[in-house]
Design a protein around this nucleic acid. Sequence first.
DNA 1: ACTTAATCGTTGACTTTTTCAAGAGTTTAA
DNA 2: TTAAACTCTTGAAAAAGTCAACGATTAAGT
Lengths: 157, 157
Amino acid sequence: MSPKSSTIATGIDRFLGCELAGEIEFLAARTRSLGSARANALLAPLGLKVRSYSVLSLACSDLSPTQRELAEFLSLDPSQIVPLVDQLEKGGFVERCADPNDRRSKVISATRAGHTLYKQARLATAKGESTSMERLSKVEQETLRDLLSRIAFMPAN
Amino acid sequence: MSPKSSTIATGIDRFLGCELAGEIEFLAARTRSLGSARANALLAPLGLKVRSYSVLSLACSDLSPTQRELAEFLSLDPSQIVPLVDQLEKGGFVERCADPNDRRSKVISATRAGHTLYKQARLATAKGESTSMERLSKVEQETLRDLLSRIAFMPAN
DNA sequence: ACTTAATCGTTGACTTTTTCAAGAGTTTAA
DNA sequence: TTAAACTCTTGAAAAAGTCAACGATTAAGT
């Protein structure tokens, strides 16, 4: 047995010590790439992708997000939100409601069916996340979440 | 003064407590998005983007990566490496060398000019990274790097 | 040795994602 | 009341991602 024991050797181990592997932007990119591939696979049976899942998640919150807010929070162009909401609306999972405070905006809220779908989808992403994090202890997982959230919401400056 | 004091209010603060904001995959996506936008802006004067910078970085290591290895390490399709190396080669920063062990492979290595360019580029990305991480202490930064690198290199399973 | 299967870089076609400018309707400020 | 700013939407164009196939080369099976 030339590789250690448990996991499959990927062949990139010899790059682990290189300078690039120490840059958080690179690490974040790889983390996202692996994570979203996994999440997409788990969400596919529900007819969702990571993007549409994210919109559904916010629509299921009690925060009544506008499309503009969805775009900013999800790091997307406002024009990218349109087809995402279109598709969820077509499936009957989400509704565009008039914003009482500002008739320019449209507030996205989940229907009953949307909430039901989200419950299942959330289980899928939670499963993916626990797979991604399986090499970290519970405490480490919370630390990671905290540190990441502190740099993920920096103002544009 | 309605916003606190220092930093610009982005308007997404009210979403910080939502369920999605607690998912690492989402946090990694936002981190990458902010980070690569900043890095691209800093690398642009050098004629590089994050992608080409990453290839150059590995070419400057003493690891003699093949294109296949570059693809795997950078989470890209092998066919995406081709134009990246083409461009760097055209600029005289990188060379495709025959792999003595396997004539199918091509080893990518940096030229003198490539090393020079990389030194400057590395300064740019380091500056971007320190901006990204400015809300974290030095110890926290190292913790984040360690935790992320442990989940960023999981085997495919 | 010889055939078969697998791998590497490359190309080309195709889909998806990203980016950007502009338009119609609405709100805010002057 | 006009002008400027903002929201959603559309459409076009560029960039990125996916995938199958090819020639050249290596590895495996017999």
